[in-house]
């Protein structure tokens, strides 16, 4: 059951987006997220939805995989839709029964916010997490944060910690599975009782897990030292990346998408989202 959690699931491939410089990709996804939040009316939402579907097609990630990744979002979508439909103060009343008022604006608003959440997920996963290996993401972050080194922040250590954390997620998940099985074999019961007793039942899993994590860390530190690790100083990289002209063209494309959203907001007529759940 623990294995189903996909963290930063990466689909290897060779599309234009895959080949982009990870640091530029991080910037592009930030630009994209800003663009999504700037959307205010139906036309700009339609535009950003089209843009994210188009990027998915370009990345050659199967649409099915993208749709599957939205499963955990269903509950969030249902809640925001529910709140918007029932509590949005609109003018065109469709149903009015006792305290329930459903307005056309409320439904529209719910729809647009759902589209916004979906677009955020599609965009960021397609631009970044699905098309970039975790190690490339940390490499990108390291290079983006490099200016901080002037303030005395050790950016390399930070990136190394992230890389190791990512590396150990599958190992610790396996370890957790093993400890759960071992405790079950000793008669531990994880599936009955109320919330408090279930939470308590997890203590015998967490403590050995912490102990194991420390053991892993100690062993890994020794192994790293044996391979002459001594921080970022004097270190070279096998794949030294430098952003190419093409990367900036793609980043430019995302900036243009953002600009288009602003223009459409301003000049296209139509319903504007208001706030109840302003997300």
């Amino acid at each position: 059951m623990l294995r189903d959690i996909t963290l930063g699931q990466y689909f290897p491939g060779d599309s234009v987006i895959h080949r982009m410089d990870p640091a530029v990709k991080i910037l592009a996804s930030v630009v994209y997220m800003v663009a999504v939040f700037l959307c205010r009316n139906i036309w700009s939402f339609a535009f950003i939805l089209a843009a994210s579907v188009f990027s998915t097609a370009v990345s050659k990630i199967p649409f099915r995989a993208v749709l599957k990744s939205m499963k955990p979002l269903v509950i969030i979508l249902l809640i925001t839709t529910f709140i918007n439909v029932f509590f949005y103060e609109g003018e065109t009343v469709l149903v009015s029964w006792h305290f329930i008022h459903i307005t056309l604006e409320g439904i529209l608003n719910a729809l647009l916010i759902a589209v916004r959440i979906i677009c955020l997920l599609i965009g960021t996963s397609v631009i970044l997490t699905y098309t970039t290996s975790p190690i490339d993401i940390t490499d990108g972050i390291e290079r983006l944060l490099k200016p901080l080194a002037m303030l005395g922040v050790d950016v390399h250590i930070f990136a190394m910690m992230m890389a190791i954390a990512l590396r150990f997620i599958p190992t610790l998940i396996e370890e957790t599975d093993r400890i759960i099985s071992a405790q079950k074999a000793r008669g531990a019961d994880f599936d009955s009782g109320n919330l408090v007793s279930r939470a308590k039942a997890l203590i015998p899993v967490l403590i050995p897990l912490f102990a194991a994590a420390l053991r892993h860390a100690l062993d890994l530190a020794t192994a790293m030292e044996c391979r002459c690790y001594h921080g970022g100083e004097g270190r070279t990289k096998m794949n030294e990346r430098k952003p190419k002209a093409g990367d900036f063209v793609l980043l430019g494309a995302f900036v243009i998408i953002g600009a288009c959203v602003i223009i459409i907001n301003k000049y296209a007529p139509g319903f504007n989202t208001g706030s109840v759940t302003g997300a």
Partner: peptide
């Protein structure tokens, strides 16, 4: 406990890096 990175060739490169 001795593989440092997530991708095989990146890990092999760790020492010479």
């Amino acid at each position: 406990n001795q593989l440092v990175t997530t991708i095989v060739e990146d890990d092999v490169a760790f020492g010479p890096e």
